[in-house]
Nucleic acid binder design. Structure first.
Ligand SMILES: [Mn+2]
Ligand SMILES: [Mn+2]
Ligand SMILES: [Mn+2]
Ligand SMILES: [Mn+2]
Lengths: 217, 217
DNA sequence: TTTCTTTTTTAGACATCCCTAAAAAAAGAT
DNA sequence: ATCTTTTTTTAGGGATGTCTAAAAAAGAAA
């Protein structure tokens, strides 16, 4: 497996290659900031290796081998993110870029031991679940903050947008994973929310609220 | 800098590109298990980037930029070896291969923090010095065991050969870095040595003795 | 259903890094 | 000084992964 092949598999998985709905050439190209013609080339290569099913003009779907492979790369990515965050004091908006490189290191022993060093974490610093060696994901029932009802309580357990700017916005407002949240009121005009988080009262725009995952009580 | 360019620089450095004596095309090819024609191609590329001085048929010499670059890659390699050995319980014969991959990860912050996590180690698990951020090497005065005189004492501080088979030979004979050694007698017939190490008496062949570094008292 | 637009593929090319085979230069031997 | 061997370079090409431009197919609109 080349680094490029691994990156394509991961992208296809993130674009929903999980289901049987095919992922389009253009969608992959946009996500990877590359050209559709390059994607077509790679689709053929991955199909050749039985990692995706590909039919001309029909997009690609991960095979079960492709899905397992993608999950193992995601496992490495997220374990490295935990390492950077827990052991090297990186901020949660700094871990992704370096993990993009580290996820391609090939050594099963390395990942097993890293997993042990970190005490077998189940979630990465953004609240995303870490696939096991067997490729299984701990699925946590979570709701977007924007979908809570007034008066509902919950725990902030994950972010949907993991961009630096969004993560830094949360830092600036002292919003961090694990905090308890209560939806006080939804303003029907602009869908903005009044919430109470760790005792503090805050107003959040709809856009913010659609990027915070809450585990309701 | 591509991964390949980095590997060439490191190899040239190890082959003595430190001094002004040029390193030959064939020597580099042999060390890297590649073909001389590939080395010639790369020599031109590195010269273009001012990392080596190259003149047709004269081999290559690292420029000071090339030397600094090589030392930073070696710094990363050895810090990762310490990490694998100290934090992930790898054996000293297992660290090199994975470090060959990790040394190419690009993140100054990562290396700085790793250095801190490891408590700014000065030597890697094989006793090799770790270059500083400034490229300076802690030079330790050390002698090959084969060059000690009868009756001399010292500490075992490094290995010259770092092959798996040699390292495992040492493990099997419970010879480990930091142990104190005394040369009892040299057999003039085959240059084998009778030594005392940590109280135990051992006989070592000349070949073994030429691969152990001793810091004499 | 025909036309227009968007998506996808193909054709051809370029950069990197590697190879083999052959030519050229350097080094060693007589 | 000439011949022989070794080293190094050049020439040409293959694999990977990318791109642009043009052709083909699919989808949407009229
Ligand atoms: Mn990430
Ligand atoms: Mn993450
Ligand atoms: Mn090493
Ligand atoms: Mn080492």
């Amino acid at each position: 497996m080349t680094r490029s092949e691994e990156n394509y598999l991961k992208t296809i998985y993130h674009l929903g290659g999980d289901e049987k709905v095919p992922v389009s050439t253009n969608a992959i190209a946009a996500q990877m900031e590359t050209k559709p013609s390059s994607v077509t080339d790679m689709a053929k290569k991955l199909a050749e290796k039985n990692l995706v099913d590909y039919q001309k003009y029909q997009g690609v779907v991960l095979t079960s081998l492709g899905k397992q492979t993608a999950l193992q790369i995601i496992r490495k990515h997220r374990l490295w993110e935990v390492f950077l965050y827990e052991k090297l004091d990186f901020q949660w908006d700094e871990v992704h870029e370096v993990a993009e490189q580290l996820e391609h290191i090939k050594s099963e022993q390395l990942i097993d031991r890293l997993d042990a060093l970190l005490n077998y974490p189940k979630f990465d610093p953004h609240g995303d679940p870490i696939p096991g060696k067997d490729g299984l994901l701990a699925v946590q029932k979570k709701t977007l903050l924007s979908e809570l009802e007034e008066g509902q309580n919950g725990l902030f357990v994950g972010v949907k947008d993991t961009s630096t700017s969004f993560l830094q916005y949360l830092d600036k407002n002292q919003i961090a994973l694990g905090q308890s949240i209560r939806l006080i009121e939804r303003e029907s005009f602009d869908q903005s929310l009044q919430i109470e988080i760790q005792g503090r009262s805050l107003r959040l725009s709809h856009q913010i609220a659609t990027n915070l995952y809450i585990k309701t009580d």
